[in-house]
Amino acid sequence: MDELIIGGEKFTSRLIMGTGGAPSLEVLEQALKASGTEITTVAMRRVDPKARGSVLDVLNRLGIKVLPNTAGCYTAGDAVLTARLAREALGTSWVKLEVISDERTLLPDPVETFDAAERLVAEGFTVLPYIGDDPALAKRLEQIGCAAVMPLGSPIGSGLGIRNPHSIELIVEAVNVPVILDAGIGTASDAALAMELGCDAVLLASAVTRAQRPELMAAAMRDAVIAGRAARLAGRIPRRRHAVASSPTEP
């Protein structure tokens, strides 16, 4: 059985879905079902007295594990407080740590992220940090006790795919904790590529929730992750500059 193990917990699906960007909870629910995901991220925000329905009800109904994120935080202090609030609200000590540096790029701030990760690990959290495609930082975060690392393929919501596959491969080589490709996935081939590069899982949201047909794209992503994982395990042939005949060369 090819299981994904994060923080001692086992999962069959290697596709982690985000919930951001879905036009409605109904569309989201259909997409989550089609994706086969077992872990799904949510954000923490002020209670809106006018809100109807809750994403938590959807996740409870589908039996999907909730992974709160710290999206919107710019400092380690903010992220730590958000993680504590999420633990209190949702009863989980898992957190997708996300500390961004600026609104335009939404790129992760490595210094604040590292600082927050140290503090959260010390408080007993299972920390999954969102980071740039930096093998050195990934290694340092593993050393301080993070349960996984989540390097970006390209900026959040950009759909630009994996801009630096070589860095992702280096991260896969550098750490022993799961590597979860997070951010930038645009279509199914991007997700398959992440898995072929050796990532243990893929996290995506916009690629599905903002697709013209979210449910269909969710199914495509599910299949792409399965195919990419199988290809990785199967071992691809080496790239060559010239042809290698596959038919017998004897007459």
Binding site: T41, R45, V55, N69, L90
Partner: peptide, 10 residues
């Protein structure tokens, strides 16, 4: 006082 809950995101 901040009162927070989970919403769609991430």
């Amino acid at each position: 006082v901040e009162v927070l809950t989970a919403v769609q995101g991430g």
